[in-house]
Design a protein around this nucleic acid. Sequence first.
DNA 1: AAAAAAAGTGAGCGCTTGCTCGATTTTTCG
DNA 2: CGAAAAATCGAGCAAGCGCTCACTTTTTTT
Lengths: 233, 233
Amino acid sequence: MIDDAEAGPRRLERDLAAFEPICARILARHRDAIRVQKPHVATANLARIIEAVLRLSAQKGFHETTLRDLAEASGLSMGGLYSYFSNKNALLVMILTEVATTAEATLRDAPEALTADPVLHLRWLIAAHIRLTERMQPWFVFAYMEAKGFPAPARRIATATELATEQIFADVLADGAASGRFRIDDVLLTAALIKPLLQDWYVKRAKYRKRRISADAYIAGVTAFIERSILTS
Amino acid sequence: MIDDAEAGPRRLERDLAAFEPICARILARHRDAIRVQKPHVATANLARIIEAVLRLSAQKGFHETTLRDLAEASGLSMGGLYSYFSNKNALLVMILTEVATTAEATLRDAPEALTADPVLHLRWLIAAHIRLTERMQPWFVFAYMEAKGFPAPARRIATATELATEQIFADVLADGAASGRFRIDDVLLTAALIKPLLQDWYVKRAKYRKRRISADAYIAGVTAFIERSILTS
DNA sequence: AAAAAAAGTGAGCGCTTGCTCGATTTTTCG
DNA sequence: CGAAAAATCGAGCAAGCGCTCACTTTTTTT
């Protein structure tokens, strides 16, 4: 199924580096719940734990990933893990919250120069969404696939984030429709249709990798597809 | 989360009726593995088991659904369940196979009168896909959400089905592009983009129900969206 | 270098899981 | 009707789960 040419400890090292800045943010947000004091120790171990749980969950699901698996994959002991989260579900919520926060913050941060023009703004949103989910692919897959089946609070985070993202797109579409740049019958439905086009990039990442379609190519393809459908000519 | 106006035994009865014909097909395919001889008894119980496992899995996931839950929800005993499948994973494969077979058979069965015209053929495919997944929504959600995390064979069924469906669309798109009815840069990518638009209907069924968007409205919306993007005018 | 604090360990506990199998009930049929 | 066949039952088993805590190792401080 997975056919990475590049594998082994070399790849793990690079991956962990990508996790650390994000885990530093998580640490800051949960400083009171995490018992390890020294920030660089805590950040490094959090990165190993979360890299491991995202990787194992992608393979077999979060619930099927045992804490023994996670201990071995992260290099900590079972007891050691519990210095970083109070229980398995708290680990899930930690990850979900980080995804939700980052997604919202990123998409609401369009350059002001662009937001005046709905066409450019929409283009930027599409690219920003795909680039973000490319950078944090395991995180988004996790949030998408595991959100269901957990206590209501965790599920609400996921649903709310999804709706918030859709609303950001709906606002731009409404803007463009009002100014005559877009021809759209139903703004809400159109926003709802754009969402799965963007989600497909990370949900079916393996398929696109196999077909050698790059993030840039996907951005170009999706943008063209959407614009041909809604742009007034 | 779920806010059905119509609930209780009345609804269950109607749902079970919808399951029986499908379960009769499953019984035929697994006659040797199912120990219960009388077809109408076996079909009725299979329907109760599968209705229950799809409902519980949608709530909390297949792996989190225990056989004790399933026994209670289906009205059989724990031991009784094992007259219908040899182990929990076999139950999963049973469902997956039925979904795969039905999807392929349905989409390859376009009326001959339509297949000559790629525009009409594509319209038919979109409508047929959405209508099928509407009729068998719990089945498709199950196949989509639970395929991962299970032994390679089960996962392959899901992946193969997905690819087969995409290929059916790609063929029609290529046909229409060749005859000048469609303007498409990349047929494979376009087919890949149409897929998530169709899947969204059953994956996010709750959202569309809440917004009071009917299957027909969704078919109309998606068809218009896609055709505006690819039709030569 | 000794003491104190912090970080990390892993065997073991109580509980739940998938699954079995002898016992029991229901159905079939001479 | 009554005995054989079919269908169903559910307590019990081994295995594996999340989680704890008395303990050891590492790091910091004095």
